[in-house]
Amino acid sequence: GATAVSEWTEYKTADGKTLYYNNRTLESTWEKPQELK
């Protein structure tokens, strides 16, 4: 079967924080998503 690919993209901001963006739900979060833990 196909492996579930994470929908989350990780961005590094200018101040060194990490922003997570979900390509499916168009949601963005500063918290690390469950799927990435």
Score class of each variant (00 low, 15 high):
residue 36 L to Q: 04
residue 4 A to T: 13
residue 29 T to Q: 10
residue 30 W to N: 08
residue 17 K to E: 06
residue 35 E to V: 10
residue 31 E to P: 02
residue 16 G to H: 03
residue 4 A to Q: 14
residue 36 L to D: 07
residue 1 G to R: 02
residue 12 K to T: 14
residue 5 V to Q: 13
residue 23 N to M: 07
residue 29 T to R: 08
residue 26 L to G: 15
residue 31 E to S: 06
residue 10 E to N: 02
residue 14 A to Q: 10
residue 17 K to I: 06
residue 27 E to G: 03
residue 13 T to Q: 09
residue 2 A to Q: 11
residue 5 V to T: 14
residue 26 L to Q: 15
residue 25 T to P: 02
residue 23 N to Q: 08
residue 8 W to I: 02
residue 17 K to P: 02
residue 33 P to F: 02
residue 36 L to P: 05
residue 33 P to M: 01
residue 17 K to A: 06
residue 31 E to D: 10
residue 8 W to S: 00
residue 4 A to V: 13
residue 25 T to R: 00
residue 22 N to K: 00
residue 5 V to Y: 14
residue 7 E to D: 11
residue 18 T to W: 04
residue 5 V to C: 10
residue 33 P to Q: 02
residue 6 S to Q: 11
residue 35 E to H: 06
residue 21 Y to P: 01
residue 31 E to H: 08
residue 7 E to A: 07
residue 36 L to M: 09
residue 32 K to G: 02
residue 1 G to F: 14
residue 4 A to R: 03
residue 31 E to V: 12
residue 25 T to N: 03
residue 19 L to E: 06
residue 13 T to G: 07
residue 37 K to I: 14
residue 17 K to V: 07
residue 11 Y to T: 09
residue 19 L to R: 08
residue 20 Y to K: 00
residue 34 Q to P: 14
residue 7 E to K: 02
residue 30 W to Y: 15
residue 12 K to M: 11
residue 23 N to D: 09
residue 27 E to R: 03
residue 10 E to S: 09
residue 28 S to I: 15
residue 14 A to T: 10
residue 24 R to E: 14
residue 33 P to N: 01
residue 36 L to S: 06
residue 9 T to A: 08
residue 19 L to I: 14
residue 32 K to A: 05
residue 30 W to R: 05
residue 32 K to Q: 09
residue 19 L to H: 08
residue 30 W to V: 08
residue 11 Y to D: 02
residue 3 T to K: 04
residue 3 T to P: 13
residue 10 E to I: 15
residue 7 E to N: 05
residue 28 S to R: 06
residue 22 N to F: 00
residue 2 A to E: 12
residue 21 Y to T: 09
residue 4 A to D: 12
residue 12 K to C: 06
residue 2 A to Y: 13
residue 13 T to R: 04
residue 32 K to C: 08
residue 20 Y to P: 01
residue 23 N to Y: 08
residue 21 Y to A: 02
residue 34 Q to S: 12
residue 24 R to V: 15
residue 19 L to D: 03
residue 2 A to H: 13
residue 4 A to K: 06
residue 1 G to I: 14
residue 34 Q to I: 13
residue 22 N to E: 02
residue 6 S to L: 08
residue 33 P to K: 02
residue 24 R to P: 04
residue 30 W to P: 06
residue 37 K to R: 12
residue 16 G to S: 01
residue 4 A to I: 13
residue 33 P to G: 01
residue 16 G to R: 00
residue 23 N to I: 09
residue 5 V to R: 03
residue 36 L to I: 09
residue 23 N to V: 09
residue 36 L to V: 06
residue 36 L to K: 05
residue 10 E to V: 11
residue 26 L to F: 15
residue 36 L to G: 06
residue 37 K to H: 12
residue 34 Q to T: 12
residue 31 E to C: 05
residue 14 A to W: 08
residue 16 G to T: 00
residue 20 Y to W: 15
residue 33 P to I: 02
residue 17 K to L: 09
residue 10 E to C: 13
residue 25 T to E: 02
residue 16 G to E: 02
residue 2 A to F: 12
residue 36 L to C: 05
residue 37 K to N: 13
residue 22 N to L: 01
residue 17 K to M: 07
residue 18 T to H: 04
residue 12 K to H: 12
residue 37 K to F: 12
residue 33 P to R: 00
residue 1 G to H: 13
residue 28 S to T: 15
residue 6 S to Y: 08
residue 8 W to D: 00
residue 27 E to Q: 09
residue 7 E to W: 07
residue 22 N to G: 00
residue 4 A to W: 14
residue 21 Y to G: 01
residue 8 W to T: 01
residue 19 L to P: 01
residue 22 N to Q: 00
residue 24 R to H: 15
residue 14 A to R: 07
residue 21 Y to H: 08
residue 2 A to I: 13
residue 13 T to H: 05
residue 30 W to T: 10
residue 13 T to W: 05
residue 36 L to R: 03
residue 25 T to H: 02
residue 18 T to Q: 03
residue 22 N to T: 00
residue 17 K to F: 05
residue 20 Y to V: 00
residue 5 V to I: 14
residue 9 T to P: 00
residue 9 T to L: 08
residue 29 T to L: 05
residue 35 E to M: 06
residue 15 D to W: 04
residue 4 A to H: 14
residue 3 T to S: 13
residue 37 K to W: 14
residue 21 Y to C: 09
residue 16 G to A: 01
residue 3 T to N: 12
residue 33 P to V: 01
residue 3 T to R: 01
residue 37 K to E: 14
residue 2 A to W: 12
residue 20 Y to G: 01
residue 28 S to V: 15
residue 12 K to N: 09
residue 20 Y to A: 01
residue 28 S to W: 15
residue 14 A to N: 08
residue 11 Y to K: 06
residue 12 K to G: 03
residue 8 W to A: 00
residue 25 T to K: 00
residue 24 R to K: 15
residue 10 E to G: 03
residue 25 T to S: 02
residue 12 K to Q: 11
residue 18 T to A: 03
residue 10 E to K: 04
residue 18 T to D: 03
residue 7 E to L: 06
residue 13 T to I: 05
residue 9 T to I: 14
residue 35 E to A: 13
residue 25 T to Y: 03
residue 19 L to K: 10
residue 6 S to M: 09
residue 10 E to D: 02
residue 27 E to S: 04
residue 28 S to K: 10
residue 34 Q to A: 14
residue 20 Y to N: 01
residue 5 V to W: 14
residue 34 Q to E: 15
residue 6 S to H: 10
residue 35 E to T: 07
residue 16 G to V: 00
residue 25 T to F: 03
residue 13 T to P: 00
residue 30 W to Q: 06
residue 17 K to W: 05
residue 17 K to H: 07
residue 6 S to D: 11
